[in-house]
Design a protein around this nucleic acid. Sequence first.
DNA 1: CGAACCCTTGATAGCTATCAACCTGAGTGG
DNA 2: CCACTCAGGTTGATAGCTATCAAGGGTTCG
Lengths: 237, 237
Amino acid sequence: MGNPLTMKLGHGSKLTSDDRQRLDALIETSSRIEAYQDLIREHDPPGHVRLILEGFVCRYKILENGRRSIIAYLVPGDICDLHVAILRRMDHAMCTLTPCKVVFISPETIEDLTTNYPRIARALWWATLVDAATLREWLVNLGQRPSDQRLGHLFCELLMRLQTVELADENSYHLPLTQEALADTLGISTVHVNRVLQQLREDGLVVFRDHRLIIPNVKQLKEFAGFDGNYLHLDGG
Amino acid sequence: MGNPLTMKLGHGSKLTSDDRQRLDALIETSSRIEAYQDLIREHDPPGHVRLILEGFVCRYKILENGRRSIIAYLVPGDICDLHVAILRRMDHAMCTLTPCKVVFISPETIEDLTTNYPRIARALWWATLVDAATLREWLVNLGQRPSDQRLGHLFCELLMRLQTVELADENSYHLPLTQEALADTLGISTVHVNRVLQQLREDGLVVFRDHRLIIPNVKQLKEFAGFDGNYLHLDGG
DNA sequence: CGAACCCTTGATAGCTATCAACCTGAGTGG
DNA sequence: CCACTCAGGTTGATAGCTATCAAGGGTTCG
């Protein structure tokens, strides 16, 4: 299987074979981590940068009232906050949602990449900007759309993101999330996620069984959800 | 009046007098812009970086259904996306909400700042990370809190942010936003903003008249809204 | 077989949107 | 000086979306 980081960053900058070699070296040593393990907690001092090779990770916060808010998903190829080390402590936590393979990258390595590999540096900047754009789009999604469109929008986004790392085919992918995770992501209750899912199924917009999501008609779902993938900036930097 | 950029960046990195001089030179030429003018539109190619010296600016998107979603506020001292130039085109727009004074910074100047002024570079990174953290907190706010707490949370955030640039005193500030803008920010209707505001007033949590917001008991409002200012990382980098 | 976890279903309550007026103050022009 | 306009704020009535509570069903696993 290929290097998901290379696949992803290739969308942000043209990479030379030299760049690719450097990125391949990067993922030689990785750690396996079980599902539902915190990679880092709120208030921790940020240390290494993390790169996901396999599995789903989420950023989340726990509120005063105990509710969990999932703020982002990291999928293979995603790298988290290049320069968090600048901050004294984390303002949120990160947790694996499935068994994962993760690379821990030292600040020195980041330094090396960004100063000696200009195309990689550019691609990393691009990835950072896309992360911010995704956050903005999620904000729009939460603030402005009814829950069925919200869920549809999330499904569309994950389709595109997983396609860039060859983890989704034309119209389906493995989606190992519980309805509870979806609820905490979309700001609705688990009961309601369940009902909305049923509705989407009934309308023929999605098929979701055994954690495989199939979108019979991608164009139709995108229209339904008001999804415009521009914000993922996959046409490069 | 002082340089709001210096005031803000001082929280992200210790600046020398040399750094300060450089930042002061930066704001020597600025443009006045009227209220409700787009600074940049969706799909535009990003050009200059913008620094707000006076006034309120918002990032926003318009949805298929015509709704406006406000994604962020920029207040004096805020600088927008250092490296947007990497992206081909904007995925959102920016608009002044009041008359503003704005500095347009060329990519070359950014280059100069980030390569020749390491402490400024660090502070700019810090500001970028804080922007992302703020976006995450807004996401939590929209997804998990009822509308009265949402509004209270926004008021608390603006208090802290405006205090860092000396535009708010201990417990009050000038807030030139319409209820419509608040509604588009919080994902609720203008009618509901109106009612929630009345409730907050009635409960003695805020006084809002003539665009001046007074928070009689800051601690109380923060508790009510579940506000924890950690995410603004004002204790520096 | 029981426990645990996740999904599903039904009934009810509550929050928030929508629609439709009306009010107010500022600015405009006759 | 008054009528007019317009944007923003306010109020009331109603509908609808979504939460909550409670219970039941299916699977996996020890």
